[in-house]
Amino acid sequence: MADCTRREFFGLVGGLASTALYRPLPPSAAQDSLPGTGPSGKLWDPSRAGRPLPPVTARDNDAAIQAIEKQLKCTCGCNQDVYTCRTTDFNCTTSPAMHQRVLQLADRGKTAQGIIDQFVRENGVQILMAPPKRGFNLAGYFLPSALILAAAAVLVLVLRRWARAAAATPATSAPAASPAALDATAAELERLRRELDRLPG
């Protein structure tokens, strides 16, 4: 470096700097279109937009297919049904594969129930978004309502017993004073009750 002239030194620094700063443009960058002006310009960096997707087909929006997929659980761990997952988590590769399987089974002429049964055979009952209504699962569906109805029946019985007991011993249980204590006639008390009834609440 001792023999290096000033011109050579600056040339070297310039060369290094331009090498360090040089970033080759991706081949697609020059092809980007302005919004709405091109048929379909290339993105500068497609990887930033997530997993590449195939174009949507008419069958992807088929209501019958969607209804089937809403009963099947995606196995990617998202806890969602196949339809919701494939139209929400666009990084997931499991739900599109399950969607293709549904389409495949439909193409073979299977009915909606047949497709669901096939998924259950292949993956177990856990593939369903809700357990089938049989055996122990019936407890899942009906126990809460049955318990609430039973509790309501018990509550009605208890309330009736309390009400009867209260009617039998009004002076001890209710804080309301007797007519004599109020120095009012029964008619006056009835009028008071009617007036109170008119008050809100």
Binding site: L128, A130, P144
Partner: peptide, 28 residues
């Protein structure tokens, strides 16, 4: 509250009783 708790824990109960884990999702 009981019904929500029941549904939330039902997969565990099902596994204990039937040996099968079921999914309890929005339809249920």
């Amino acid at each position: 509250a009981f019904s929500v708790l029941w549904g939330t824990l039902f997969p565990i109960l099902s596994e204990l009783v039937q040996g099968t884990k079921v999914t309890v999702g929005p339809p249920f």
